[in-house]
């Protein structure tokens, strides 16, 4: 554990907070350890700050595999449990085609064309059946 922290933060994905939303920008390859760390960081930050939404910008990701698809689905499920909504923004056409060809249509995932559109989507009131379960708490 201590060894992990003493290493330089190569591959660390920063989680930025913008008001009621957490913004994560993925660039290039996502390694197993980085993905694991990101999932942990995200859930801890949501639990601590009680934000209502997470935007994952993947416009910088050009190559995708089933692993990234699974990570995205897992993050979405995780944040849902913590009463926050996840929006994946800026997926490239080639990436979308690859995911569909792999059979990963990610049905439960919210998507948006750009980060801006994702912010707008999160600004709208929740209309899903789970709306009653949304947490009302002060940050």
């Amino acid at each position: 554990m201590s060894e992990e922290f003493s290493r330089p933060v190569a591959g660390h994905v920063p989680v930025l907070r913008l008001g009621d939303v957490l913004l994560v920008t993925l660039q290039g390859d996502l390694h197993d350890s980085t993905a694991h760390r990101l999932q942990q960081d995200l859930s801890e930050t949501i639990a601590r700050s009680g934000v209502g939404g997470v935007v994952i910008d993947i416009s910088g990701v050009e190559i995708v595999d089933s692993f990234l698809g699974r990570v995205l689905a897992e993050i979405a499920a995780q944040t849902e449990l913590l009463a926050a909504r996840t929006v994946v923004a800026g997926m490239r056409p080639a990436v979308a085609i690859t995911l569909v060809e792999l059979g990963l249509t990610l049905p439960g995932l919210r998507t948006a064309l750009t980060t801006e559109a994702a912010m707008e989507l999160l600004a709208q009131p929740v209309v899903s059946s789970r709306s009653g379960g949304r947490r009302e708490e002060s940050p």
């Binding site: 994946v88 800026g90 997926m91 995911l99 249509t105 990610l106 998507t111 948006a112 994702a118």
Partner: peptide
């Protein structure tokens, strides 16, 4: 269906 799914993944 593939096209529809891919478009949805991109946010459209």
């Amino acid at each position: 269906m593939k096209t529809v799914a891919a478009a949805r993944l991109m946010g459209a």
